[in-house]
Amino acid sequence: MSDNKDHSTGGEQQPREEGGAPGRVVGTPSPAAERRLLPEGDTAAPEGAGEELDEQAAKRAERVVASLFVLAFAASVAFIAYYIGWSGRDGGMHGIERARESNLWLGGTMTLAFLAMAVGITIWVRRLMTSQPVVQERHELRADDATRESFAKTFLEGAQESGITKRPLLRRTLLLAAAPLGLAPLVLLRDLGPLPEKRLRHTYWGEAVRRAKAQGKKGVRLVVDGTNKPLKVSDFATPGGMITVVPEGIEEHSEHPLNEIAKAVTILINVPPDKMSPRMRARGWDVNGIVAYSKICTHVGCPAALYEQTTHHILCPCHQSTFDATDAAKVVFGPAARPLPQLPLAEEDGYLVATGDFPEPIGPSFWERG
C-alpha cells in the first residue's frame, strides 16, 4: 500500500484521478509557465501582410471615404443649425408641442453623422490600410530610451501604413467631419437654459384676470382641468374634496397652452371654515371654505397632488413635503422651505372665480425667476 509522497522531492503529491493525468507535486513550478501561445521563433506574417495596394482602387475608395466624411460633416452642421435655429421658434424644443419633431430631426441628423463616420472609417481600414507583422515583447513597465525610440519609429510606420500622411484628402475630410461632432456636446448645454428671466414670476391667472376685469367681470372662472367645465360653488360644496383647476380660456388665448397650464395648475380644496387659522380668515381668499393653492411643490417642483381629509394636509409624494391647507399651506413636514402660493378666490353668478394671480412666484425657490 503506497502513500502519495514523492520521496525524491519531499513534497506532497496530489492524488491521481482515475483515468486522468498524474497529480502535480505541491511546491513545484506550474507547467503552464513552460507553455507558449505561439511556438518559439514563429514570426510568420498574416496572410496579405505587406501587400501593395491597387492605386486605382485605392483612389476610388479614398473618394468614397472622403464623401462619407463630408456627409458626416453636413449632418453634424444640420444638427447644430436645427438645434440653435429652427428648434428655437414657437417655443422650440423647450416646448411640449414640438418635442416629437425635435427628437426626429436631432436624432436623425446625429445618427446620420455617426453612421457616415463609422462607414467611412470601416472602408478606410479595409480598403486603404496595409498590414505589417508587428512583434511585441513584454518587458518591465518602465520604458527606457530605446523603447521610446522604438515606439516612435513604430508609430510613424503605422501612420505611414494607415495612409493618414500619404492621403491628405482623407486626413482633411476626417478632421472636417470630427470638428462639429466635438462641438455638439457643448451645443447641448443649451438645454440647461434659456434662463426663464421673469416668466416664472407670473402665471396665466394674472393675464386671464386682467382680461376678465376689462370686460367688467370680477375675475376669471375656474374650470376643471381636462374637461374645461366651469366650476360652481355648489358643485364643490362638500368638505374634504380636492380637484385640479386651471383658468378659463387658457387653451384658446395663450400662445403655448401646455406650458402655461403647467405653471398655472392649481388645486382646489374644501376645508371646514371653522378649522381655518385666523390669518386665513383675515385674508378672505376663500369661498365658503373653498381655497386654492398652486399645485407645484416649493421643494423641487413635483405636483403636490395628495390630500388627507382628516388632518387637512396636502402631501407631495416625491419627497413627502407636507402643507397645512387650513393655515395658508404652511409647511408642517418635509424639505420644502416655504408654503404653497395661494390664489385669491371669489364668487360671481354662482361660479368660482379667481380675482388675481398668485401673490408670489410659484415653484421652488432655487428656480431662476428673474
Rank of each mutant, 00 (worst) to 15 (best):
Y204W: 14
G92I: 01
E40N: 08
E62V: 10
A325C: 07
P29E: 02
C297N: 04
I96E: 11
R283D: 13
Q136D: 01
L188T: 11
E140D: 13
D349H: 15
K232M: 11
P31R: 03
A178M: 15
G249W: 03
H313C: 00
T355L: 03
V291H: 01
D3K: 12
T9P: 01
V25C: 14
T165Q: 07
Q56V: 14
I121E: 10
M1R: 11
R16K: 12
L37F: 10
A74E: 06
A346T: 09
P341F: 04
H319P: 12
Y82C: 03
V187K: 02
Q14V: 15
V134S: 10
A113F: 04
G108V: 04
E161G: 06
L231H: 05
H202V: 15
L106Y: 09
K217G: 06
R36E: 02
A292C: 12
A208P: 03
P247R: 00
R35E: 14
D6R: 13
R283A: 09
V265K: 04
A118N: 08
P364M: 02
E251V: 01
L169E: 06
H202M: 13
T28G: 09
D42C: 01
D357T: 03
A113N: 08
L200Q: 14
A262S: 12
H299P: 12
A304D: 03
R369D: 11
I84S: 04
P278G: 08
R98W: 06
K59L: 12
R148E: 15
T322N: 11
M276C: 00
E308H: 08
A177D: 04
R167C: 05
C297G: 09
T266P: 01
P22A: 06
F333Y: 13
K59E: 14
S254F: 10
C318W: 10
P31Q: 04
G48R: 02
W105A: 09
K263Q: 15
R172I: 07
D286M: 05
T43S: 02
A262H: 10
S131F: 06
V265A: 11
K275C: 10
P273E: 06
F358N: 01
A292T: 03
E255D: 15
